[in-house]
């Protein structure tokens, strides 16, 4: 078989893993990010500070370092303190790291979405006697969510590419599939070109989809 075609086929075998981890990370990122966004809005200073520290630490360190700490560092630390611990599968720390990483980014996005909601909407809700929680749940968050949907899509695209660092912690996603095949076949160029093509096959249509969605929403907002 043509080595280039084979390179693509090999890389494609890693695609479900890449997509799965990325999807999971977007979901976790959205949920945890929402918590942090609300924490940053909290009236309690200490809650705000915790959220801020988390976001700064995660955004200020490379994901590969976080992944190595989570996959190998933490089990080592636990073993040192006499706790027999091993990740049942390396996907688990990989997903956690990607999700928590995404959360730090999404927290900012969601906070921006909340701020973009017209204050008049909140006043109308207040004037009808709604509580703070009801206003958040029924009025502000649904509107903020709509505003940030395209950002969720963009984050998914980013994650598809960023999860390639997980190849270093032994998760067999697109890049790791290519590396493994390269190691056994020595088809170095077809292996990595195959990976690149598969990444593009995923990210290009997704980016186009997000842009189309953004355009449609901008039209609706008029």
């Amino acid at each position: 078989m043509n080595p280039y075609l084979q390179g693509i086929i090999v890389a494609l075998k890693g695609a479900p893993m890449t997509i799965g981890v990325s999807l999971f990370a977007v979901a976790v990122g959205a949920l945890v990010g929402l918590c942090f966004a609300l924490m940053k809005k909290s009236e309690k200073k200490i809650v705000q500070i915790i959220a801020k520290i988390y976001i700064e630490v995660v955004r200020g360190t490379p994901m590969i370092v976080q992944a190595l700490i989570m996959a190998y560092g933490i089990p080592y630390l636990l073993q040192q303190s006499g706790i027999a611990f091993k990740w049942p599968h390396l996907i688990i720390p990989a997903m956690i790291v990607c999700g928590l990483n995404s959360a730090a980014y999404m927290a900012e996005v969601i906070r921006g979405g909340i701020q973009a909601v017209d204050p008049g909407q909140v006043e109308a809700a207040q004037s009808l006697g709604m509580s703070k929680r009801q206003i958040n749940r029924l009025i502000v968050l649904p509107q903020a969510f709509k505003i940030v949907i395209p950002s969720f899509g963009n984050e998914f695209v980013t994650l598809i590419k960023e999860t390639s660092v997980l190849s270093f912690v032994g998760v067999v996603e697109i890049l790791r599939s290519a590396q493994l095949w390269n190691a056994s076949s020595f088809e170095t160029f077809p292996a990595y070109i195959g990976a690149a093509i598969v990444y593009l096959m995923l990210t290009y249509p997704l980016s186009k989809g997000v842009s189309a969605l953004e355009k449609r929403m901008a039209k609706e907002a008029e």
Partner: peptide
């Protein structure tokens, strides 16, 4: 109840839902 200069209808809710949301939840 208050009526505003800029209406402030809830933009993500239908007309009917705009009217029912507060009676139901409040």
């Amino acid at each position: 109840a208050m009526v505003f200069q800029n209406f402030n209808l809830f933009s993500h809710l239908s007309v009917l839902e705009n009217i029912t949301v507060a009676p139901v939840h409040v």
